[in-house]
Design a protein around this nucleic acid. Structure first.
Lengths: 343, 343
DNA sequence: TCCGTAAGTTTACGCGCGTAAATTTTTTAT
DNA sequence: ATAAAAAATTTACGCGCGTAAACTTACGGA
């Protein structure tokens, strides 16, 4: 690396012996030039330190390589993890991910989309808040920018949806619980903001019916994203009231379960499988912390990697095809039962 | 809002009756124009939907309004929370935060800085990995872009450092534990990557000595950011070996404590304050999940809000002053004891 | 009221790169 | 070998805004 400073593409063209328009093509898409010239350019890049000015590059381009990634809550390790996996895939495919979290707020979610718009993104991957989302602006945005939903579906919006198969995963868990003990009650939020929660409720009801058991819904009051707190409060109530017709509770997600476990512990309940235990608890999502609850949480592991990969690939394929949406397709991945000590 | 589409600043100048250079000034800094013109422009913005092209804006500007924010691990709720708080402050001060996580990897950390460089940021707020960080590139970067460190200090690097006062907080906790029971052992990683860990170890040793007790260090093997796993494994070992000269363990951070609690639980230990308990455990950081451990974790709460505010304000003040660093200053905030049920 | 200064306008140029068109060179196919 | 196709070069222009200079207008204090 000679430390010669290269100011701009013009200068780099001079020292590399490649014309500027060809360099422009190369930086936009390395394989759009002949292999031999690609090699020459890369050789020159070894010797001279140059990278095109990001702003000049994007200002006048028809389509940038920016891909927006918006998740409901970056402080939730579940979303942090899947967002990171998606970022990796996007980067590997030669695009530039821009990650934003909505902090559980519909206003911030819309604001994020507005901010992304000024980046002229080639497309965005959106995990929407769900019920709380402000649909009209999102729909307007989808009409302008290729948008693929993941994790949470909004019917009919965007180019498609990639998520997990709640029907299968809840069915799997209900079956397991019924096979190994009493049929589960279902702990969820009364008015959940996440569409998956509705799917899971329905799946629970269906699975119980199918096995000939009476379903029992425990619906916790509360809004927002403080799921542990909501699970905790409802847990205290359930233990105190002792009206539960079963010793098994399936939670709509792990964070509710974490709160429930905490409440049960404080109330002196013993949780788990053994004969000395008075309660079984199961969750859903395989939250990073569910391994360390007391006892460790039996749950469903979503296929993070598959969802991330499929999301990124679907969107980028659509973008590169350049064609508008012909058919909105939904892809669901099955969950896997993770057996630990809580149920 | 008339739906007339405004293509560029030229057009907006025409409809608003303000000259383009003045508009340019306004968009760069709203209070740099006279109050009356500011009002006129804002009135026009109500009627016409226009925002300057981000790329054209930054391409030729001496200094952008971009502020990079880099944290070691976005999937750690602790960092997600403080990063978000910082973002809010930056935005409120008229700048544009760009958040990146380093995924615990020194390579990614450097890569993040490189990527930020192409954004021509006015400055960056960096919470470095610590010992694992690749110092040379960081130092080179600090020389080019005003950089303020937070959370973890790297001696002498950047414009300064904002963090928490480990000496005070650990002292506080050791005092509390000694006053209410047996003096604590200290659980930490053998070779921690975080500089705070070293400070906390030293603070523990000093506090114990000051109270006339013999310190006892438990140093867990393990690298990386899987603190819960490391705490869990070491917890199993400690409980099994029974060589601990005390019934009280202070953990270098909450994530280690979460792992330890999990291990102790699985080993049938009772943890907490009561006479029937065989172990007391305390943590540090007031991790969002420490409220829901079993039992809930007694810990030290860092002053997130103060650290975030001070970081943002210090950096932006330096940037707006335009002067290079005259004196590198370090600001430490005291921690607060959060008493729960584990100790 | 007047004047000095701060603020706005006009004019003009440049930033670094995208992109189109016309031309030349290289590669591939026959 | 030759023609056709593909790729690279040359030339030229434009994107939208930053910014400097010279000038004109508005403001505030005595």
């Amino acid at each position: 690396m000679t430390n010669k400073k290269i100011k701009n593409m013009e200068e780099f063209a001079a020292v590399s012996g490649i014309s500027r328009p060809t360099l422009s093509k190369f930086f936009n898409d390395p394989i759009s030039v002949r292999a031999s010239t690609k090699a020459r350019i890369e050789a020159a890049l070894e010797r001279y330190d140059f990278q095109p000015n990001l702003y000049a590059m994007n200002q006048n381009r028809r389509l940038t390589k920016n891909i927006g990634v918006v998740v409901p809550h970056l402080a939730d390790p579940f979303f942090a993890k899947i967002a990171h996996t998606i970022e990796d895939h996007i980067q590997a495919m030669g695009y530039r991910p821009v990650l934003l979290g909505s902090q559980g707020s519909p206003e911030v979610e819309i604001q994020n989309l507005e901010n992304l718009r000024s980046l002229k993104p080639a497309g965005i991957l959106l995990a929407p808040l769900g019920r709380a989302s402000d649909l009209d602006p999102i729909e307007a945005f989808c009409a302008e920018v290729p948008t693929l939903l993941f994790d949470a579906n909004l019917e009919g919006l965007g180019e498609g949806f990639v998520g997990s198969n709640n029907d299968q995963s809840i069915g799997l868990m209900v079956n397991y619980l019924c096979r190994t003990g009493e049929p589960p009650a279902f702990l969820e939020m009364k008015s959940p903001s996440n569409p998956n929660a509705y799917k899971r409720r329905t799946a629970y009801l269906r699975a119980m019916e199918h096995l000939g058991h009476s379903p029992y819904l425990i619906q916790a009051e509360g809004e927002g994203w403080e799921f542990e707190e909501i699970g905790f409060r409802e847990g205290l109530r359930v233990v105190r009231d002792k009206t539960l017709p079963t010793d098994t509770i399936l939670c709509s997600n792990d964070r509710l379960a974490i709160g429930l476990l905490s409440a049960a512990f404080e109330s002196g309940q013993r949780i788990g499988l053994g004969p000395e235990c008075s309660l079984r608890v199961a969750g859903h999502d395989d939250h990073p912390f569910s391994r360390y609850t007391c006892p460790s949480l039996t749950t469903i592991s979503q296929d993070y990697e598959a969802i991330a990969k499929q999301s990124a690939e679907t969107l980028l394929t659509r973008i590169e095809a350049g064609s508008p949406v012909d058919s909105r397709q939904e892809t669901l991945f099955d969950g896997r039962l993770v057996m630990r000590h809580s149920a």
